[in-house]
């Protein structure tokens, strides 16, 4: 993979990833990550250091695993009665590719949820750090910066 092909492959990988989330294919989603992969949904989008900040999610592999188990366990009353969701992802831009095996991409995501007669939007800037793995990728980092991250949110029954 090189040049435009890498970018196109990465875009298709990201589309597949979010399609899994929209369709609840969480076990497949868990396999997309590197062992040290971090899934972060910050409150302060410009925090210099998410580890020392309060986030909505700051997940390593174990925490992602628990999160998926919670959503699918039937033990959580909000997840059992989950919102319907759908998202679109676009406006991809290559931010960094100086290491041929690692690619950093930023894109726009707009997720819409429907629950209790209410339609809500969750627009965000998403940054991926993807590591080449054979003919596909693994996610080393996914940071979802909700544009209303400093606003008052409501309970989320899905993964961004």
């Amino acid at each position: 993979m090189s040049g435009n092909n890498t970018m196109q492959d990465a875009i298709e990988f990201i589309w597949a990833e979010v399609d899994m989330l929209d369709h609840g294919e969480f076990q497949d989603w868990l396999k997309l990550w590197t062992e040290d992969g971090k899934y972060v949904i910050p409150i302060d989008q410009d925090a210099p250091d998410f580890e020392n900040s309060l986030n909505y999610a700051y997940d390593d592999a174990a925490m992602r695993d628990m999160r998926v188990r919670r959503l699918t366990s039937g033990q959580s009353m909000s997840a059992t009665n989950a919102a319907k969701i759908m998202r679109t992802v676009s406006r991809f831009r290559l931010l960094k590719s100086d290491d041929p095996n690692v690619i950093t991409i930023r894109c726009a995501q707009n997720l819409v949820e429907f629950k209790y007669e209410k339609l809500r939007n969750y627009p965000s800037n998403v940054t991926y750090v993807l590591v080449k793995d054979g003919d596909t990728f693994r996610i080393r980092e996914k940071i979802v910066r909700l544009i209303n991250s400093q606003g008052a949110l409501a309970g989320m029954t899905f993964l961004l």
Partner: peptide
């Protein structure tokens, strides 16, 4: 929080 394991429930 809105993505915690307790608050949304």
């Amino acid at each position: 929080g809105p993505m915690g394991f307790g608050t949304p429930d």
